Simulated scan of single mutants.
Amino acid sequence: MRKLLILLIAVFLVISCAGKQEQEKNAATLFKEGLHFFQKQKYEDSAVLFEEALKKANNPELAAKSQLFLADSYYLDEKFDEAIAAYKAFLELYENNEDAKRALLRLGLSYYAMLQPIDRDQSYTRDAYNTFLKLREKYPEYAKRYDIDKKIRHLRNLLAEKNFYVAKFYVRIGEKKASLLRLEKIIKEYKDTKIYPEAALLYAKVLVELNKPSEAVSVLTDLLKTRKDPRLLQGVDELLRFIKKKIG
């Protein structure tokens, strides 16, 4: 019985000491252990350690590194919502840090990975677009390295398509004035997108239906000047002939 009691006390002391050592780990040690798991691509484990290191960090440099690697762990683990929050926190605190461009890039890529179909909310599309615009403005050469211009064009097309999708819905339910607002936005802001010709043609049709033929002609004229696409000619020609008959 006495031997058993001694053994239990010894086990308790070992566990207590181990627990105390764990509690006493400083931020640098936690960060180093996190980096070990990160390099082994065990991102869930590394995220836990980087978060602990961040809580205990007593200098700005280590705190910044912990925050960034925490965000990177989430990003590489494809936990994009968590990555977005972590990168935003890093950029709010360390906007002028040398790693800010990497954080801004991956923030944009995290939004980009969460893009939704056109019939759903496009918040991630707008956030990705605005983030990439900021990246290109602040770090043009870095943005060029990652072909950000191509992504920006893609996002502009998606935003224009969303407006067109909503405009067509309004036309379908008879809310023509509401559809004009969406179509006008495409005409003014997204003239360089793929959907612009189709949107301009629909815009002109709605204007005609609202008894604004002269405005419709102006839109069609501008469309023909802007886009030299033979496929537009038939639709534009038919609408212009209809307008001519309407106004006598």
Rank of each mutant, 00 (worst) to 15 (best):
M1L: 07
K3N: 09
I6R: 12
L8S: 15
L8E: 07
V11F: 15
F12D: 05
L13T: 13
I15K: 00
S16V: 06
G19D: 12
K20Q: 09
Q23G: 14
E24A: 09
K25V: 03
N26Q: 06
A28W: 08
L30P: 00
F31I: 05
F31N: 00
G34C: 00
L35G: 01
H36C: 00
F37K: 06
K40A: 12
K42Q: 14
E44N: 12
E44Q: 14
S46Q: 01
A47C: 02
V48W: 02
F50S: 03
E52T: 07
A53S: 15
K55V: 15
K55C: 05
K55Y: 12
P60Q: 07
L62W: 01
A63T: 00
S66Y: 02
S66N: 04
L68M: 01
D72A: 05
S73Y: 06
L76N: 12
K79S: 14
D81W: 05
D81I: 11
E82R: 13
I84M: 08
K88R: 15
N96A: 12
A100W: 00
K101I: 03
K101H: 04
R102L: 10
L105M: 04
R106L: 09
L107S: 04
P117Q: 04
I118D: 06
Q122H: 05
Y129L: 03
N130D: 11
L135M: 10
R136C: 02
R136Q: 15
K138G: 04
K138N: 12
Y139D: 00
P140Q: 08
P140T: 06
E141S: 10
A143H: 04
K144Q: 14
K144F: 08
R145G: 01
I148P: 02
I152C: 07
N157R: 09
L159I: 10
E161I: 03
V166R: 08
Y170T: 03
V171L: 09
V171G: 02
R172M: 06
I173V: 15
I173D: 11
G174L: 12
E175C: 02
K176N: 09
S179W: 01
S179K: 02
L180W: 03
L183F: 11
E184M: 12
I187P: 00
I187Q: 14
D192T: 10
D192E: 15
I195Q: 02
E198M: 11
A200T: 04
L202W: 08
V206E: 07
E209G: 15
P213V: 05
P213H: 09
D222K: 12
L223F: 01
R227T: 11
K228L: 09
R231V: 10
L232K: 01
D237N: 13
L239P: 04
I243M: 01
I243V: 08
K244Q: 11
K244F: 11
K244D: 11
K245P: 03
K246M: 09
I247K: 15
I247M: 13
G248L: 14
G248V: 13
